[in-house]
Write a protein that binds this DNA or RNA. Structure first.
Lengths: 261, 261
DNA sequence: CAGTGGTCTAGACCACCTA
DNA sequence: AGGTGGTCTAGACCACTGT
C-alpha cells in the first residue's frame, strides 16, 4: 500500500499544491510506478482530510503536466514513458539504406536499441497538393500526388504519425504506391527512377496535438508533439518528397550537425 | 460592450465547455482583442446563469491553452501571441556576425522582421560543470565554467531562456565575463582567443515547462516549450560552448539543411 | 451493482489590485 | 473600500467501468 505524507499547515503553499507535490514525489521516486493506479479521489479526500474538489484540483495539475492520465470510471493512472528515439541528421545517409536487407530503417534501429517496433494504419492514396505541400514541392496548387500515411509504434505504444507526399509524375506506378515499397524504402525507389537524393531540409516545431492526433497517438490531455516537415531534394535541386511527421515529444530527441561556415 | 451568446441546453457539451468555446470564439474573431480584459467572473456568472465554479472551469481551460492569462486582483486578459522566429541552421555563419555593428544577432533579426527585441535578466557567474554539460564539453565533472544566463523578449513578451556554459580556461578573464561581450557576441570573443568555430551540433526536444520556466516565460498551463542544446566546436574539434535554450514553442520554427551523403 | 471520475451548486474566506 | 481572482467546503447528480 502506498504511503503518502500529510499536509503541512505551516507550509505557505495551498493544500492542493502540497497534495500535487506529494503525488509527484511518489511518482518520481517510483513508489507509484508507470501504469499504476493512484488512490481514488475518495481515498485521497479521506487521507488528507480535505474536500473532494481540493483533491481534484491537485490531480488536475498533474494531468496538466502529463504525469498522469484520468480514465473515466476506472481511475487515474501514472503515464508510462515510451523509449526515447534519438534521430541523427545523418539517418538518411545512403549507407543506412544499404545492408538493411530490405528492412525499414525504423525496424533496424529498434532492433539495435532493444525495443519492438511496428508500423500500422498504412494508407496509400492519390490526392491534390494543398498549399503547404505545393509550395514545398514547388508544384502548382492541386497537382496530383501520391500520399503515404502510416503510424509508428515502439513497444506497442504509438509514437509518430508520418505522411509522405510525392509528385505522381515521379512516384506514380512505382513500388512507392505498394504497401511494401521494397528494400531501401521509398527513397531507394525514388533514386531508381532517376532522382538521386542530395540534401534534405527539416522544419521543426512543437505544439499541443489536435483532438484527432491525441486519439491516434493515444496521448493524455496535455502532452505536446514535435512536428517535423522534411523535404528531400535531388541532384537538380528538385523537391521530390515532403514528409510531414507528428511525433510524441517525450519519445524523441532530434540531433543536427552543421558547419559554422 | 462585448456580446456573448447563451448556453444551449440541448448541446451535449457541458456548460463549462460551451462557455469556453464562446469566449474562444470572441477572441478568435477579435471581439476580444489581445490585451483586453474579459468580463469578470461575477459578470459571466450572471450572464450565463451558472455557478462561479463553472465559469472558472471554462476560464481554466482557456488559460491552459495559453489564450488568456489571469492577473490576481486585476482580471483575466487576452494574451498577445508573440511573432514567430524562424531559426535557420546557418544563423551562426560568420557573415551574420560581421557587419552587425556590434549589435547582437537577435536584435538585428528583430529589426528586419519588424518587432521589438529585448534581452533581460542577464546573469553571469562561475559554476562547476554538471553531468550533462561536462559530458558535452568533454570536461571532468565539476570543472570551472563561465555561465551566462539571459532571457529574450519579442514585442515585450518573453520567448526564450538561454544559458551558455564555457570552460573557464577559455572564457575566463575575457569580455565573455562582461555584461556586454562586444561586437560579434561571445562567438567572436571565443575566436579571438584562438578557437575558430567550425561546426555546431543541436539536440532538439519538446516538453511541458517546469513551474519555474512557466513563470519566467509567462506561459499558460499547457503551452509547450522547445528545448535546444547547442554545442560549438573549434577547428581541433574541441567543444568550446554549450548553450541550453528553452523556447516558447509557438514562437519558433527551426530550420535545418543537411546533405543526403 | 458498487466504485470511479466528470460536472455542478451555493455558499465562504482570503489575497491582491486600484482608487 | 470595493472589485478582482484564488482557494475551499459539503453536498448533489451524472456517465462510465467493472463484476
Amino acid at each position: 500500500m502506498l504511503q503518502l505524507g500529510q499536509l503541512d499547515r505551516t507550509d505557505d503553499r495551498p493544500p492542493y499544491r502540497q497534495i500535487a507535490a506529494l503525488l509527484r514525489e511518489a511518482i518520481d521516486l517510483g513508489a507509484l510506478a508507470p501504469g499504476e493506479k493512484l488512490p481514488s479521489e475518495t481515498a485521497l479526500t479521506q487521507h488528507f482530510g480535505v474536500a473532494r474538489m481540493t483533491v481534484r484540483h491537485a490531480i488536475l495539475e498533474l494531468r496538466g503536466e502529463g504525469l498522469v492520465a484520468a480514465e473515466h470510471g476506472r481511475g487515474v493512472f501514472v503515464r508510462a514513458m515510451p523509449p526515447v528515439r534519438r534521430l541523427a541528421s545523418d539517418r538518411f545517409a545512403r549507407k543506412h539504406r544499404a545492408g538493411s536487407d530490405g528492412k525499414a530503417a525504423f525496424l533496424v534501429e529498434a532492433e539495435k536499441a532493444g525495443y519492438t517496433a511496428d508500423v500500422d494504419q498504412l494508407r496509400i492514396f492519390r490526392d491534390k497538393a494543398s498549399e503547404g505541400v505545393a509550395e514545398r514541392l514547388r508544384l502548382p496548387l492541386g497537382s496530383e500526388l501520391v500520399v503515404r500515411e502510416r503510424r509508428y509504434l515502439a513497444n506497442g505504444r504509438p509514437i509518430e504519425i508520418a505522411t509522405s507526399y510525392l509528385p505522381a509524375v515521379i512516384a506514380g506506378g512505382t513500388a512507392i504506391e505498394e504497401p511494401d515499397p521494397g528494400p531501401g524504402g521509398i527513397y531507394a525507389r525514388v533514386e531508381e527512377v532517376g532522382h538521386q537524393l542530395t540534401r534534405f531540409t527539416e522544419e521543426v516545431g512543437a505544439r499541443m496535438p489536435s483532438p484527432n492526433e491525441r486519439k491516434t497517438l493515444e496521448l493524455g490531455a496535455s502532452v505536446p508533439v514535435l512536428t517535423v516537415v522534411r523535404t528531400a531534394f535531388d541532384a537538380a535541386d528538385v523537391a521530390v518528397e515532403v514528409c510531414d511527421t507528428v511525433k510524441v515529444a517525450s519519445a524523441y530527441k532530434l540531433e543536427y550537425d552543421f558547419p559554422a561556415r
